[in-house]
Write a protein that binds this DNA or RNA. Structure first.
Lengths: 323, 323
DNA sequence: TTTATTTATACTCAAATTGAGCATAAATGG
DNA sequence: CCATTTATGCTCAATTTGAGTATAAATAAA
């Protein structure tokens, strides 16, 4: 079927995220016909033309999507055979990337351009159980946990993983475990991709309503991206790569909340950010409904590679050995 | 020169770390002849035989190295062309992994087996500037920083990266920036690999004494491994995957110190670990020089995927939106 | 057999950080 | 002018962290 059974193609797929209109969005490409799932922007890695994979990735993104990337980070390289439908010409290894793009200054956005900038989807459409901003999603207790329990009845192997990932029986819900949760839902065949990979084209069984499906393992890449971003926010100031040049503290907080899927305490958030020393006032102010807010910008060009909230060395350093 | 210009081979290379005799060690394979650099255990990914890359990796490790792997984590996929000497038959993409192995119980180690278990090298032989346990390494001020400054004279572009990575001018030394430091030393041609990649076989210039060189980009993988491990220790309890089944708190602390390259405050470390609730006393005690120490073990089989020191959500959660 | 030395463990205390809330300021829309 | 909204300032208790001092229990040396 395939030209050469051990030929390997490397596919670069990128989860491009932006913050827009109070939503965290993800850029998609591909057919919007009902049968065909959309996919992340992608392209093959061509070692003869791209000196590094990141160069290749930027090439494809430039070609397919007209956005400037801020933070770019390699996520993971997936090569599971089970995930790729048979019939492919070669073995595909997909290298997933996370990229953040800065929103334009709210004022400067040309109004007509809004609909012209491609297919952006609400990220939580793919992971509705990850958004706790309005409280614990009802979906969890109404559908997910009962279905997982039913799955565990046949095979209790994964019981502990479910407990930790979904925060049951004393375990805390950890918002970083996005991938772990998605993988469990996949294993339990509660997401459409699992049915497709099993050859059941999603027509036989009732289509599970657990978020929108994507091409191949792209939703897995997206889950990795969200988990990584949530995790990274806590120790590296990547959040600013989702912000325009000038922004209010409230806007920064909203963006953080979108990513974390959780609401934060406004006054304490302000205290944290002020203490971090990353921001500097522009002197300008931005008015909306209530009291006008001060507009900040990133101090200098302190690049993103600095810890945001102090290091977690924990347990206290001591003096070096005297001897 | 090569059979097919765009043919891609995937190479799985693993940094296998263990803790042994108060040292953090790394398993190497390959010639010990003077001219040929050693390398990390490796093998090609063969999609026809390995369903996932991790399966392939475990296969090669089993074949080349007789150790049981505990924690295994994919690090990064490197595909830079500049890094691979020309003349290779195909484009090699190397997927780097980090693996931790548990030490045997100190009592149960057969004395003669010690020398029989392969080629283990002190990790800090490759990164002497990363070990601050005896205080700030003299190497830094004596050699590294002057050489970097000399490099920056020609091109000050990287000045800010140097400042952040090496903690100068107000910036703090961040022990996680292992890769960033190594890359800068590579770019400044202060490590042997840089000279080799430039075609100067290290004979012309005086060989820089900045740590032992490894095959191709294996030292870069090792740097990634150390940085990732240092980072991960702070929020996931992977440290236990370097420990034997039973251990004293002092042994746990020493291992943590080896990894972090920093000394910790003993009483506070104890407090932290006790509070974490990960450990449970075995009732046994272990005697050495001073007062005998209590021997602990991991509680149950709480797997490693739990936060060690409380989450860093920072800025405090608030109640969900009431509306 | 005492004594110094070494290591483990217990406890204290001040400083810093965090979590939660009250209070006030400065706009807008009746 | 007043109710509403949002931003910002400030307080206060609880918890965590950093850095010690004190004591316990062993070994090595005198």
């Amino acid at each position: 079927m395939s030209a050469n059974p051990s030929e390997i193609l490397i596919d670069l797929s990128t989860a491009i995220l932006r913050q827009h209109d109070e939503r965290l969005q993800c850029r998609l490409v591909g057919e919007s016909s009902a049968t065909q799932a959309k996919r992340l922007p992608f392209g093959p890695f061509m070692p003869d033309q791209h000196r590094t994979m990141e160069i290749g990735l930027r090439h494809w993104v430039r070609e397919q999507v007209g956005v400037d990337l801020a933070h770019v980070e390699q996520l993971y390289t997936f090569a599971d055979q089970g995930r790729h439908a048979s019939g492919e010409a070669a073995h595909i290894v997909s290298v997933g990337y996370l990229a953040l793009t800065r929103t334009r200054e709210p004022d400067k956005t040309p109004p007509e351009a809004a609909s012209e900038d491609g297919d952006w989807q609400d990220l939580y459409a793919f992971f509705p159980w990850e958004d706790w901003r309005q409280g614990r999603p009802e979906l969890l207790d109404a559908q997910i946990l009962p279905a997982l329990d039913k799955w565990l009845e046949k095979d209790a192997q994964a019981a502990d993983r479910v407990r930790l990932a979904f925060g049951r029986e004393g375990a805390q819900w950890d918002e970083e475990f996005v991938l772990e949760r998605y993988e469990l839902l996949y294993e339990a065949a509660l997401v459409e991709e699992a049915l497709i990979d099993q050859g059941k084209q999603g027509r036989q069984r009732p289509k599970p309503a657990l978020g929108l499906a994507l091409h191949l393992d792209h939703r897995r890449i997206l889950a990795t991206a969200l988990g990584r971003l949530r995790s990274k926010l806590k120790y590296r100031p990547v959040i600013f790569d989702l912000m325009p040049a000038g922004f209010t503290l409230r806007a920064l907080q909203s963006t953080t909340e979108m990513v974390m899927g959780v609401n934060l305490h406004q006054q304490n958030f302000r205290r944290l950010v002020e203490k971090s020393g990353f921001l500097i006032s522009t002197g300008r102010t931005q008015r909306a409904r209530g009291r006008p807010a001060e507009v900040f910008r990133l101090r200098h060009n302190e690049r993103t590679e600095r810890p945001l909230s102090g290091l977690r060395v924990s347990a206290g350093r001591a003096k070096p050995n005297s001897k």
